[in-house]
Design a protein around this nucleic acid. Sequence first.
DNA 1: TGACGTATTATGTGCATACATATTATCGAT
DNA 2: ATCGATAATATGTATGCACATAATACGTCA
Lengths: 235, 235
Amino acid sequence: MSRTSYLDVKAAILEQIRSGALRPGDTVPGEERLAGEFGCARVTVNRALRELAEAGVVERRRKAGTRVLDPTPRDAEMEIPSVRAEIEATGNPYRYELLARQIAPPPRPVREGLGLIPGIRALHLTCRHWAGACVHQLEDRWINLDVVPTARAADFRAHGPNDWLIQAMPLSRVEHVFSAQNATGEEAELLQIEPGAAIFVTERRTWIEGRAITRARLMHPGATHRLAARTLPPI
Amino acid sequence: MSRTSYLDVKAAILEQIRSGALRPGDTVPGEERLAGEFGCARVTVNRALRELAEAGVVERRRKAGTRVLDPTPRDAEMEIPSVRAEIEATGNPYRYELLARQIAPPPRPVREGLGLIPGIRALHLTCRHWAGACVHQLEDRWINLDVVPTARAADFRAHGPNDWLIQAMPLSRVEHVFSAQNATGEEAELLQIEPGAAIFVTERRTWIEGRAITRARLMHPGATHRLAARTLPPI
DNA sequence: TGACGTATTATGTGCATACATATTATCGAT
DNA sequence: ATCGATAATATGTATGCACATAATACGTCA
């Protein structure tokens, strides 16, 4: 029997978060307590919690203890805030609109992106996010109902699917691919811009434990949209 | 007199890299040795080096020791490879072309982005990066000669300014802002695309110790350009 | 009652030590 | 000379201990 590693502690706590035993806002037991439970030294627990804090999973404050964070604002290097927060930060009122919702077999590129067998149906949503009187984002999303069956029953008329998914599936892996494209006629109409105007397209795919959850194509008017990323030097 | 912190060790080693005393490829002295020099425990040096390794500054291998890494491929989350590597990865031959070079007072937005006093002149470069027969990137760059006076003497006809700057100024802070725009007539001509076609624009600014080094506007044909970012889950 | 100082508490970090593990170097046998 | 076992070495990490630091809780005094 080997000794308890800080990796064991880390994995155990992550598992508790994934399973819902620890929810955002909850306080993780203190280092001393956990060290007792795991039968290891406090420093070992310390390292596990420290790395979880670095990863943005928990927040630590002296005396106050360790609290599970909201999974939203994950990494500082590549900050992709929720659409709502992004818009409200500019002072504009945010409005969400569900344009279409159906369950259908996705087109081939989407199907392959989600790793689905041909013929399998998925949830298809089209939404619009407004910043005041301007369209900020047009969202075309497919959700893998095999992985997230509860999405079938979810009501996306009041709240966007992204917020819902972040709630339902924390700690997932995300891939973003950005590109610039000329808006098609339909896209231009929905975005309230001229056909052919440059749009900034984000293709976002999300996995949990190797299984694709969702694939979203997010379109923004190119003239107004800005995406920033900072790489900080060590220290 | 307080004890030596792992932060002190980290800062000292970073300083040696910045100053050039430790160059990429060099081997950092062993933990035991450094612990002796700094008058601290080996665990303290270990933590400093471990964090530097996590930050991508050094590479550690058992028995082999700790080596300073090339500053290029800094962070895995937001991988922005050198243009050359990016193109050669696709199998296309890379070609670099210097279109213009002059020393002039920059226009106001650039001047403010670089934090320069009005009237101060800076190095202005225009370059093109080819992937085979296609233009991959059109680069419009200003370099702050106050911070990098050696750039005045550098010859940018054979190699691009980005490679040169990475060599000359390691460990700097970088900010990227991405957007989609419609190409102007001039831009379209240089990029060999139709006027009005969507272009993917990266605005990159680089600082070292709070001073702006350079500001580049990188334009790519939107149809072909892709930028990917991944956020990995903890563990 | 309210302000302020002190006790309490949880995390942060350093040290000496011990052992684990990966990798290279070395040396001997074939 | 080649292969393989073994030694040497640098990093990886667990432990017990001590003290530092930040923040809250709480009790005392005006």
